[in-house]
Nucleic acid binder design. Structure first.
Lengths: 120, 120
DNA sequence: TGAATTACATTGCAATACAAGGTATTGTTT
DNA sequence: AAACAATACCTTGTATTGCAATGTAATTCA
């Protein structure tokens, strides 16, 4: 059980959400995520993820010069990316609800789990 | 991006929470999780997870006879398991906070790097 | 020139959800 | 009894993905 495992499949949704808000480049995202409370992410996490999402048509990228350092690859959301973000948000909300249900164990225990349940 | 990916590292915490509440056996957990809103889980997910957690000393198991079918392996939490559950809950709360921060981007959009970008 | 910083990319590893397939025990039906 | 269904547990192999390690390149400054 580790924090990194809990991020699986969640990080891409977060990136989509940030990109939707404003065009950003990869290197910037590490800082960005930190301001949101995450520990800063490895570039080995972020770049492959961005490439994957671009391959899937969720984001597009354009290179722009920087005043200091090499060119930056700015990402923006495609319509498909926006759609995926909506799906992600829905799934995240469901997950949150369910996990919180378990953790606060609503404790109604109305599970009908008879030993001698003989069904058809 | 799929629901199963979002569960990684979260499911064990959920199992710990359920087990803490009441002694349960593996086969029962699939149903249990469904009442909490999850889709029912494969046994290929649950059993390896329980064995792993036992190996790590988070749970103990005792076999008990059933009125119908083979013996059931009932699990209960060890002190270490309770401790792990607390850690999980803390981590889950942090994750929730951070992800929700991103999704509702209750953010300031202050670019701290303050550098201009020159279009190419 | 060389070092530092910025920025992007790739490779290989580890963790884990899950489908598919297997085994064993008890009760019911033929 | 034999056959079958339901219950209950377990194992193997695969796909996904976060991340450390490593490499490359562009720009600035000493």
């Amino acid at each position: 059980m580790s924090t990194t495992q809990m991020l699986k499949g969640i990080l891409d949704g977060c990136l989509l959400a940030i990109i939707k808000n404003k065009e950003v480049y990869g290197y910037e995202l590490a800082d960005k995520l930190e301001t949101y409370g995450f520990h800063s992410f490895s570039e080995g996490t972020i770049y492959p993820l961005l490439l994957r999402m671009q391959k899937e048509g969720l984001v597009t990228s354009t290179l722009k010069k920087s005043t200091a350092g090499p060119r930056r690859k700015y990402y923006s959301l495609t319509p498909k990316g926006k759609q995926e973000l909506d799906i992600f948000i829905k799934r995240w909300d469901d997950l949150q609800t369910n996990v919180n249900n378990v953790l606060h164990h609503e404790s109604d225990t109305t599970t009908k789990k008879g030993d001698e349940t003989i069904e058809e």
